[in-house]
Simulated assay, not measured.
Amino acid sequence: MLIDDLKVVLQVAEFKSIKQAAESLDMSVAVASAAVKRVEKAYGVELFVRSTRKLRLSSFGEKYIPQIENALVILNQVGQSAKNEQNIIDGDLRLAVPSDLGRNILLPWIDLFASKHPQLNIRLHITDSTIDFYRDPVDMALRYGAPGDSSMYGFKICDVPRILCASPYYVETYGMPVHLKDLDSHNSLLYQLHDTVHDIWEFSCRGITSKVKMRSNRTANDADIVRRWCVAGYGIAMKSALDMSDDLLSGNLVKLMPEYTPKPTELWLICPSKQLITPMVRLLRESITDKCLTIINSLKKSGYL
């Protein structure tokens, strides 16, 4: 029996399903089932009552699962303390990142981080959807917006301005909007999260905040697609300055309506547990923070912010 076997048992107890536990741990059902059997054999008791469709804790499971959980916490703390003293960066980096930022900005940063720490295993989860740390196979998530769950542990990476922009082709074809009322005659490229289409855009100008409902013929639940549509000239987009930085600095996109400031956002690194805030997490946070601030400063020097 291995410590990893105990982790499998705890996940099975959490999900009440070997299949779901295996998916959350990125392993096969057969491997997860074998781990449970090894633990039960080592203890000489059945921790779960199984049927063809259901699985529940046995009386022994109800008694011993909490003790296993406590024991694992202590073992993890001992192991992490030893690594901290030796400055060892290893193990699995299971990170969720937004689609556009993840593919086009973060990926080379993460590759560089991994090359400096060859004992790391990268498990990258690219999604714009809300992360469920108890079901999704991730230990931390990089997300736009401050965490809404007070039980989470978060590190603010930086403030992120949003930018209203379009391609030079679009501006040449359809004109340059100057005032908010001009937006009525332009096609917007919209982002959708679950059932919510973000078609209300908020701006501030000289201390006055205004909201505009945008019309659109293109909506996507992937922020990367919205950026690509914008570069291709299909409409105007309001997105994170980080997401659009490369295209702005290269001239693929131009900033629109500079007198009007879109509502800004924030970038956060979020963990569900204090035990997951390891030296690896702290180093990753510092690395991402430095690189994000470098981009923001480049956009400021170029007059985009």
Rank of each mutant, 00 (worst) to 15 (best):
K54S: 15
K291S: 03
I288Y: 03
D247C: 14
Q192D: 04
A114D: 03
A220H: 14
P168T: 15
F203T: 13
N221E: 08
R56V: 14
G44L: 09
T209P: 02
L124Q: 12
M176S: 13
L249G: 09
L47P: 08
G175Y: 07
D246V: 13
K263T: 12
K37S: 12
R218S: 10
S250N: 14
I163K: 04
E23H: 06
D5Y: 01
V197F: 00
R38N: 10
A21W: 03
I163F: 01
I88T: 08
K300A: 05
M27R: 08
K7L: 13
I18P: 02
R215V: 12
A35N: 07
M140L: 10
G148H: 09
C271I: 11
W201A: 02
D128A: 07
Q77W: 03
L305A: 08
S99I: 12
D136F: 14
L269E: 01
D92H: 00
K291F: 04
I163L: 07
Q275E: 15
W201L: 08
K63Y: 15
G207T: 09
L293I: 11
P272R: 07
D247H: 15
V97E: 02
G235M: 09
Y153H: 14
I110P: 05
P118Y: 00
G175L: 09
L142H: 01
S188I: 11
G235K: 11
G154F: 06
K54M: 11
R53W: 13
V160Q: 03
T294K: 06
G175E: 12
V160A: 04
V31D: 04
L305Q: 06
V138M: 07
D5F: 01
A30I: 10
D247R: 12
M238S: 14
A237D: 14
A96K: 04
D222A: 06
D26I: 11
Q119D: 01
C205Q: 09
L269I: 04
S17A: 04
D26M: 10
Y134S: 14
